[in-house]
Design a protein around this nucleic acid. Structure first.
Lengths: 356, 356
DNA sequence: CTGAAAGCGCTAACAA
DNA sequence: TTGTTAGCGCTTTCAG
């Protein structure tokens, strides 16, 4: 991975007379002004104990007077860390990921790290190139929310790199992860619909590259089977987008005639609230009422879920905690690269609203 | 601004025998393996012209064989740039900002920069501390989407720093900016309502700290006045949140009795689609039908706007372009710090849907 | 076309 | 408690 040409750095100063201050000032300048050595300035800067208060004050005064700011570029090289955490998401426009990212950000920040957010579009190539940021030391660690299939391909080449998986993971990969029990969650959604008397339940799923999509599908299938229902193929759709529009058109397609006699679904389980919100819109546009004609269950409990009409019954994921936990796992791994790598499953919750 | 204590860097290697390769490898190692000097390796790395093809191939081979990756920490120090662009948003969970951020990100990436995303919560203190990242050389430039009032306070102390304003700006500040004509846009929204026969039009506004809030309010007031209508105080609300819930409860309050006789609004103009979406929900919960009882106009045209029931009439902002333009202005400013600083206004557009 | 060498600004031994 | 000094890994004159 070679880098392209880069901009010219600041041209080497014409060695003019000392600047008015504040600009391009280095630790050496502060040391001079304070009448101490650079080591002492560095000690003050890093809050080391062994500096006489009087000396410290002198240094602090010089810093204030000069408007000096530490050059983190130099510090980073010296300490061999970037203090940046890389977060790779398939799509940060999606409110679900946005909330997780906030969780990551808040923990990272608390620990003196900043977050480098990268939208991969769930593309293996882009993810691979972002992953390379770790090797190039641009980031100290990474959190990946991309499909488990991508992670797996990458993981083989990068298992030694400091990263953790969030939401999407492959337990056998030996990479620390945090997520929820998608299988059970999907089962819970379906059993709720079953309890409401539905027997013809459709599944609007996302791309099967996602671990969650596979697990939720299995949960859906097994829950139906356990209830003595044979899930029809025609009840299932796989979408390669989580956009509202995708959900809307999927709903329309799903409710269209060409189902065997008496096989038109009376309920739809969509694997994300964005999809489910689109489904609501799609059903409305073909004149179906929710929940009277068709019941709808979503997934995630993003904030819009309670605002749509009718409000969505959904499976709530602890998004914020997912992000926070991922960040903590990563921080742990950075602090102790050899420690064992836990996998964490957080609880989900069925939230019943008007759409069922 | 002093830094707190930091983690220990990797302990100084026990100077063991050369590593198996790939790990902690530097340019010197590659040079040795290729039988050339570090300067030559650097030239190859940076695609300089003056390297004999044969030499280049040798170097490339050594790089491939060793799995070497450039250490950007070192490169950054040497070139005195971080190749990071700082983006400060009041709330990146808001879909409006999310879309702008995508625009910034795509342009930044195209030019070899990465984006450091910081959520300021529209807090002056946090913004100030993020701003300091520029001085500490953690970022080469910044794009600020925070309220213009905050920017102004900051701008005075930081006008020399390379940053641009997006959406929120203060033309007199001399900082490059991009935004829309909020005054006209709000007028357009109100005039649309007027044309539909409404005369009692309410305004659900956000915190008046925002330039856009002040401008839209003025546009609203003037449009009413020009139509011969005296805007009532009771028709206006200022919220300190753009959340759906905030919009929902504001709508309920607004439609409550204590209006002078015949002064209850028949239309609501909300300054953001998130608010307007909440308004829809709030109206529904008090039994008002949209648009029959009350018409609603939003602002932004985020993707949810077309999905709610009824779909929102709204003022579309070119969010993606706003972000892209902001990034380009910043890049321009970085390339030529002394060039003049343009202010750019992008066009808005009234999108008429079912809510009016 | 290639190499030797001088730092970028900082931290951390090691000495004093 | 403080100072001296040796790099971190890279880019870039300047010589050859």
């Amino acid at each position: 991975m070679r880098a392209g040409p880069r901009r010219q750095p600041r041209s080497p100063e014409p060695a003019g007379p000392a600047r008015p201050a504040a600009e391009g000032l280095s630790i050496a300048g502060v040391a001079r002004q304070a009448g101490v050595s650079v080591a002492t300035v560095s000690r003050v800067l890093n809050a080391h104990e062994n500096v006489r208060p009087a000396t410290r004050d002198k240094v602090l005064a010089a810093i204030d007077a000069s408007g000096y700011r530490v050059n983190e570029l130099a510090r980073n090289l010296r300490t061999a860390e970037s203090r940046l955490l890389l977060t790779m998401v398939p799509d940060f426009g999606n409110p679900f990921y946005a909330e997780i990212v906030r969780g990551i950000d808040s923990v990272a920040r608390q620990h003196g790290y900043f977050m480098l957010l990268c939208d991969t579009g769930a593309d293996a190539g882009r993810e691979r190139s972002y992953f390379d940021l770790l090797r190039r030391r641009r980031a100290d660690g990474a959190i990946c929310l991309d499909p488990a299939t991508i992670q797996q391909a990458l993981g083989e080449a990068s298992s030694a790199l400091p990263w953790v998986a969030c939401c999407e993971f492959e337990p056998s990969m030996g990479v620390p992860y945090v997520g929820i029990d998608n299988y059970r969650a999907a089962g819970d959604a379906v059993r709720h619909l079953l309890a409401r008397g539905h027997r013809r339940i459709a599944l609007i799923n996302s791309d099967i590259d996602y671990l969650y999509a596979r697990q939720r599908q299995q949960g859906y299938l097994d829950a139906l089977t356990e209830a003595g229902i044979t899930p029809l193929e025609g009840w299932r759709m796989n979408l390669n987008s989580l956009d509202y529009e995708a959900g809307a058109s999927a709903a329309a397609v799903l409710m269209e005639p060409p189902h065997p006699k008496n096989a038109t679904p009376t309920a739809i389980f969509a694997v994300s609230d964005t999809l489910a919100t689109g489904v609501l819109h799609g059903l409305r546009s073909i004149g179906k009422r929710v929940p009277d004609d068709v019941a709808v269950v979503g997934f995630d409990d993003i904030s819009i879920a309670s605002q749509v009409d009718p409000p969505l019954t959904t499976i709530a994921q602890p998004m914020r905690e997912l992000g926070e936990t991922a960040a903590r796992l990563l921080l742990q791994r950075l602090a102790n690269p050899l420690a064992s790598v836990p996998g964490v499953l957080l609880p989900h919750r069925l939230v019943i609203r008007g759409s069922t």
